[in-house]
Design a protein around this nucleic acid. Structure first.
Length: 952
RNA sequence: GCCGGAGUGGCGGAAUGGCAGACGCGCUGGACUCAAAAUCCAGUAGCCGCAAGGCUGUGUGGGUUCAAGUCCCACCUCCGGUACCA
């Protein structure tokens, strides 16, 4: 019984597609267009993982399906090739990163071609190509040239930034500094996440629980000059525009949570212009009346500390304040007798890594500054503390603390014995709750009715929030405000293998940067990486490019000396816009031709792993919006539909143990069977348990089988694939043994695309068996093959066959539309099971199946198509159409229930109405028997569906 | 803690509120074979029964409905994300 030989036919068709440029993209779409995009891989040294082909096969099926339905399809592939692993490999081996990267790309390309994806390989690109990163640098220049006009909610050219009169009066230096403060790309000296082990700073998004996302090394905070991108300016639009996207709600929510929009109010607390210490009532009164007259200032005046709160309704319960250790007013608010303690505390906080902060989060620490502020609502004095539970980077870096209604403030107040005043009375409280509230035993964070709040008493939380915002605003003491968790994007890295910044720093006569910058003109891009023998990080924040040859590092323009920026861009940069370049990959005049951009954007289907739910997708959307604002792209959002493929876990692992003792199974638990195989399925989990047991005793070189022992329990679990666990599946090996079509088909058959699911090699073997059956259904049973099976004949399909053909067409078509590939495959299996039993297999029916199967198993389908006598590829054959009339059978079987329990089945002509159906059910003799002597209370008839007699 | 998602045979999984378990794996029996593999045929949720058939079943406990895997309420478990964001 021949199995078809995938090794031969797969290579044959891959070469055919390449030679005939079968999947070349039209320059412009004609009719319906489909831009289907895969998240391009980072070409690691390990080669493709079985997780990659899952998403790639899904998009490939959609592309092949839509081509056959007449769509113009853009389906490109490329490589996200800058990044740390290549550089680290280069350091270990002493070869330049470009060499290793190219080798890895070659391997990835080979593997991708081996799987028969219908990419337009003419559009291949890598982020490391100078012809590509030239435009990455160009977009950076655009960001640098853009400021965010919040009044109009859009990015504008920096030349159009209105300059305030006082700045203009101060001269050109002041103007350029003012502009620099407003650019979307700016330099800033701020505490950043420095990872000594990796020798680079990291974005907030790359730090997880105080450790680097890559490698898990400790990260500490330290101030450094860094390039930042003002993504916060777009926070509002990044959140709002999610609404119109066809993404899963869970991914949208992840993005919303990351952006972290909250609404509340800013409030200024008076600390006295002559702080530290305690302001006098007279001072406070004077300040208040000045505020009432002049209104709420953009920046707090010298006498005030500004806080942000989401609960302005609890203002009367603010019994103390906390400012972050990095807050600029720390020093000014510290009284001499507290100076030493504050200084020590702040120093400790500064050197504390995020990890330390997380670990110590359980106990609150802090130091009193000695200063007292005045609660603007109650007029009561409140002490000002410094504590690291307040973050300098969120809100204003200072809070009003309301221990009665905030867990953290409560804990702090308890630790340091600060007063707790309840100001919200929660609804439906028990007497115990009431007691706890009044005694300050617990923090009540829920909404309720205001108490202890002067004339606001009795208001609900929502009413109070509105009223207080209005009142504060009228008195010039505060205003309603919106805040985001999102921080500006730290955009520079101290590594070699990344895009250089197209920026030059002007040097003074001593060769030191004087603070003046200029950009490399767009027509001189790209700024390429220099040849560098030593690009090792050395644990200090000075980037490797600082060791570049002087010819690269220094530039003289108009007699002035400049030093190049030596930081490089993070790996995310290249992936922020690659989908645009795929549309026009070889254009050396511009980033993208506007005509092509309009024709192909947006991406209609984007499939990739959920690990990019925030980072890549957020960054990419941000860049796209800037490009949109500046008129370079025509869509507000880049990715209309996003689907996250689920993770593929390793093969299921089984463990068995005794219920009573919890001990592991041993040889004593199993008994040898006659033929030495697991046999008895009557013993519940025995087959699996036997496998477990057999593995235990296999070490002794024998096979055993389990006795029927109910005390034995078996547990199964699948784990993430990892080298250390040794459960990694290599696509090369799978293709070698089962063929690319089997791998593709199996990954689609495993379960829903978005679900996490374990690998099963016998499952691969199962779908391979299906492909073999399809082959034998059509091809003669001879090793030499290539001859039609005698059962395949030019005869008309019978009515019954025809209905199956059309039902299969309808099901597979709709399943392809909804990406339910597992059920589509099941339907094709049913089709095959039916026709292999038949001695006559009409050629037309066989051809239909091959067309339906072709997006899934393209090599086999092409080969069978050819054997059926077609000369050209089936890639553009019209997709079969289901005839609606043939989807309906002449008669239907309808279940009959009595009191909701299935009691029989009747067959009625399709389209029978309720009365006919009910009559048929009544006359069915079994039903008649069961209904005898009972009173029918009600009859529910759903025509074509079911009959239910409710009886008494 | 908080926020998502999911719990269905021995396993992966199907199922617009309308016959639970499609399809595949595994297993059992049979055919072919000296034998094995491959292939083909039949069976396969559990329990009772020679059978016809009956009863029980979609994490647990309630509820809505003629009818619940599906809808509502409470809870349990697992997976993923996130964590002093005021």
């Amino acid at each position: 019984m021949p199995r078809y030989n995938p090794a031969q036919i797969e290579l044959k068709w891959q070469q055919y597609w390449q030679t005939n440029r079968t999947f070349a993209t039209p320059r412009l779409p004609a009719g319906k267009k489909l831009y289907a995009l895969d998240m391009f891989p980072y070409p690691s040294g390990d080669g493709l993982h079985v997780g990659h082909p899952e998403g790639y096969t899904a998009t490939d099926i959609v592309c092949r399906f839509e081509r056959m339905r007449g769509a113009s399809v853009l389906h490109p592939m490329g490589f996200d090739a800058f990044g740390l692993p290549a550089e680290e490999h280069a350091i270990r081996t002493g070869t330049p990163p470009r060499v290793g990267t190219e080798k890895n790309i070659d391997n990835f390309r080979r593997q991708l071609k081996m799987l028969g994806f219908s990419y337009d390989w003419d559009r291949e690109l890598a982020t490391t190509d100078p012809g590509y990163f030239r435009w990455t640098q160009w977009i950076f220049l655009l960001l640098y040239d853009t400021w965010y006009d919040s009044a109009n909610q859009r990015g504008q050219p920096i030349a159009e930034l209105p300059i305030p009169a006082d700045v203009a009066a101060a001269g050109s230096g002041a103007i350029s500094r003012y502009q620099d403060e407003h650019r979307l790309a700016y330099e800033s000296e701020a505490p950043v996440n420095w990872c000594p082990a990796l020798g680079t700073v990291l974005a907030n998004e790359e730090v997880i629980g105080g450790l680097s996302e890559r490698g898990g090394h400790p990260v500490v905070r330290m101030p450094l000059r860094q390039w930042m991108l003002r993504i916060t300016a777009y926070a509002d639009r990044l959140e709002k525009d999610l609404d119109g996207l066809d993404w899963s709600e869970s991914i949208k929510k992840l993005q919303r949570d990351w952006i972290g929009r909250s609404t509340g109010a800013e409030v200024d607390f008076f600390v006295g212009a002559a702080a530290p210490g305690k302001p006098s009532p007279e001072e406070f009164a004077a300040w208040k009346s000045a505020r009432a007259k002049n209104g709420y200032p953009v920046k707090p005046d010298a006498g005030a500390v500004r806080v942000y709160t989401t609960r302005p309704d609890t203002l009367f319960g603010a019994t103390y304040m906390v400012i972050a250790p990095e807050h600029p007013l720390v020093e000014r608010l510290t009284t001499p007798d507290n100076a030493q303690a504050i200084k020590e505390y702040c120093q400790r906080a500064a050197t504390k890594s995020d990890l330390d902060r997380t670990e110590l989060a359980k106990t609150k620490t802090g130091v009193f500054t000695g200063s007292v502020a005045i609660n603007p609502a109650s007029g009561e004095p409140v002490p000002v503390w410094v504590a690291d539970y307040v973050l300098s980077s969120y809100g204003t870096g200072a809070i009003m603390a309301v221990p009665a209604h905030d867990e953290r403030d409560f804990e702090f107040a308890k630790t340091f014995g600060l007063s707790i005043i309840p100001v919200v009375n929660p609804p439906n409280q028990s007497p115990e709750d009431r007691e706890a509230l009044l005694r300050g035993d617990r923090a009540f964070t829920v909404d309720g009715i205001a108490i202890n709040s002067g004339r606001y008493d009795g208001l609900t939380t929502a009413e109070f929030k509105q009223a207080i915002a209005t009142d504060l605003s009228a008195k010039g003491l505060g205003r309603g405000a919106v805040n985001y968790k999102l921080r500006d994007w730290l955009f520079s890295r101290q590594r070699f293998w990344g895009e250089p910044f197209p920026v030059l720093h002007e040097l003074d006569e001593f060769g030191k940067p004087n603070g003046v910058k200029r950009t490399v003109p767009a027509d001189q891009l790209p700024v390429d990486l220099p040849e560098l023998a030593d690009f090792k990080p050395h644990g200090r924040p000075e980037p490797p490019l600082a060791k570049a040859p002087e010819s690269w590092l220094y530039v003289t323009i108009d007699g002035r000396r400049y030093r190049r920026e030596t930081n490089t861009m993070p790996q995310w940069a290249g992936s922020c816009w690659y989908f645009l370049r795929f549309i026009d990959p070889r254009n050396d005049q511009r980033m993208i031709d506007p005509e092509l951009e309009k024709a192909w954007m947006p991406v209609d289907l984007y499939i990739g792993g959920a690990e990019h739910a925030v980072l890549h997708l957020l960054y990419s959307r941000f860049w796209h919006k800037v490009l949109y604002d500046r008129g370079h792209v025509s869509t507000v959002e880049p990715f209309q539909k996003l689907v996250n493929q689920g993770m593929i876990l390793g093969e299921m692992e089984f463990t068995g143990y005794r219920k009573e003792t919890g001990g592991w199974l041993t040889a004593a638990d199993v008994k040898l069977n006659a033929d030495g195989k697991p046999t008895d399925r009557k013993t519940g989990a025995s087959a699996v348990a036997a496998r477990v047991a057999a593995e235990v005793v296999e070490k002794q070189g024998e096979h055993f089988v389990l006795t029927a022992d109910p005390s034995i329990r078996v547990e199964s679990r699948a784990y993430k694939m990892s080298k250390s666990r040794g459960n990694v599946v290599n696509p090369d090996a799978v293709v070698k043994e089962y063929g690319a079509d089997a791998l593709r088909l199996y990954e689609m058959f495993m379960g829903p695309l978005e679900a996490t699911k374990p690998w099963s090699m016998s499952g691969v073997n199962g779908v391979r068996g299906f492909l073999d059956r399809v082959w034998r259904m059509i091809v003669a049973d001879r090793i030499e093959g290539m001859e039609l099976n005698a059962a395949v004949q030019d005869v008309p399909t019978t009515a019954e066959q025809n209905r199956l053909v059309h039902k299969t067409i309808a099901a597979v078509t709709s399943n392809c539309e909804t990406l339910s590939f597992n059920t589509a495959i099941a339907r094709m299996m049913e089709f095959t099971n039916y026709f292999t039993k038949s001695d006559v297999r009409p050629r037309a029916a066989m051809e239909t199946l091959i067309l339906l199967l072709s997006p899934f198993a393209p090599h086999l389908a092409e080969e069978l198509w050819q054997i059926l006598g077609h000369e050209r590829t089936l890639a553009y054959e019209p997709w079969p159409k289901a005839d609606p009339a043939l989807l309906i059978d002449e008669s239907v079987e309808v279940p009959v229930q009595i009191n909701g329990k299935l009691r029989g089945r009747i067959v009625v002509p399709t389209g029978s109405d309720a009365a006919v159906t009910e009559a048929a059910a009544q006359t069915d003799h079994r039903i008649t028997e069961l209904l005898g002597g009972k009173t029918i209370v009600k009859v529910v008839v759903v025509p074509g569906r079911l009959v239910n007699f409710v009886v008494r």
